[in-house]
Computed example of a mutant assay.
Amino acid sequence: MVAIKDPWFTVQAIDETTFAISEYGHWEKVHSYLLIGEEQAALIDTGLGIDSIKRITDQLTNLPIIVLTTHVHWDHIGGHGEFEKLYVHKDEEDWLINGIQKLPIEQIRKDVSRDITIATPATFQVETYRPFQGSPTGLLNDGDEINIGNRILTIYHTPGHSPGHVSILDTKNGYLFTGDLLYDETPIYAFFPTTNPTDLVESLEKISKVPHVTKIYGAHNTIGLHADILKEVQDAVRVLRENDLVRFGTGVHTFKGFSIQF
């Protein structure tokens, strides 16, 4: 098993071919995930872009890497420019190329630079920081299957937090990578103008029915939630609908293991 010590990233081995690459020095506590197949590797998101995530992936594999984007928010596409093959859901192709409209760079720079608890690299200058913009290699659609060599990754379109958000199932191991659709400790967000509460709840219901899930790996906070949380998700969906809470402005709703803010 590879052991990596790095001044910015923390690397956790989930198994011999699956790694979480985390940025704990930033308030987002964002995770990217490297999945290694027999023919190529898939990097799910590329983090904040404060430091070079490719420095880490180069130590973990010599295989060609494809980047699978859960969604086009700045904290998940920061290292996209370091890789050649980038994939995104078709509903966020425009965001990847042109950026998110009405999200000023000043706000992004404020968010990326606040509440940092460890030293950032000399190459990081908040005054010049910009989220990645560029054309994807290809587009993802609901139901797509990507074979990285004896390891098939299934794409689930799970909008709500963003229009083109996807979750990714590693069918070999039962790992479900949920991006910003499901994680613990801090609220799942669906209160921005670019979010959709109804879509988010439908997406939660969708992933709660994905078969053979063993672990859930969200993009923030705890790495590896037990699959039992999917039963809690089903209960939450029912409660939210029965009480007419699936709409903007109803606030934070707390359930066993996670919370949602509309």
Rank of each mutant, 00 (worst) to 15 (best):
L68G: 04
P121Q: 05
T117R: 02
F248T: 08
Q107D: 01
S203D: 09
Y33N: 00
R130A: 11
E82M: 00
F255G: 11
H226R: 10
F192L: 13
F255W: 05
S113K: 02
R55Q: 15
I53P: 09
T178R: 06
I168C: 10
L182A: 04
D15E: 15
P187S: 06
Q125M: 10
I14V: 15
K209T: 03
Y217R: 05
K110I: 00
D51L: 03
E127K: 10
T158L: 07
V72G: 01
V166W: 04
I216H: 12
L34D: 13
Q59M: 10
G249F: 06
T128I: 09
T120W: 06
V252R: 15
D170C: 12
T195Q: 08
K209M: 14
F9E: 10
Q234H: 04
K231T: 14
I14G: 01
Y33K: 01
G218M: 04
L176C: 14
I66M: 12
G174E: 12
L140E: 08
I66N: 03
I105W: 03
G78T: 10
S203I: 09
G174A: 09
G79N: 06
D180F: 08
T250W: 11
D142M: 12
T120F: 02
G49Y: 11
G134T: 14
P64T: 07
L204F: 02
G174C: 12
H212P: 00
G79M: 03
K172G: 10
L43V: 03
L103I: 14
Y24H: 11
E205I: 00
T120R: 03
G81P: 05
I56D: 08
L63S: 13
K256H: 11
Q261K: 08
Y156K: 05
Y87T: 05
T69C: 08
S203A: 05
P163W: 07
L225M: 15
E145P: 02
I155N: 12
T128N: 09
I207A: 02
H226S: 14
I152S: 06
K206W: 12
E82N: 00
S208L: 08
H212T: 03
A236F: 04
D115T: 01
A42F: 04
Y129D: 02
N196E: 07
H226M: 04
T214Y: 05
Q234V: 06
T10I: 11
H89D: 15
K5Q: 15
H161N: 15
I4W: 03
L63T: 01
P211E: 04
V112M: 11
H157W: 13
K206R: 15
I168H: 09
Y175A: 06
F258L: 09
I97Q: 12
S22I: 12
P163M: 13
I105F: 03
P7K: 11
M1F: 14
D91G: 00
V233K: 02
L43T: 04
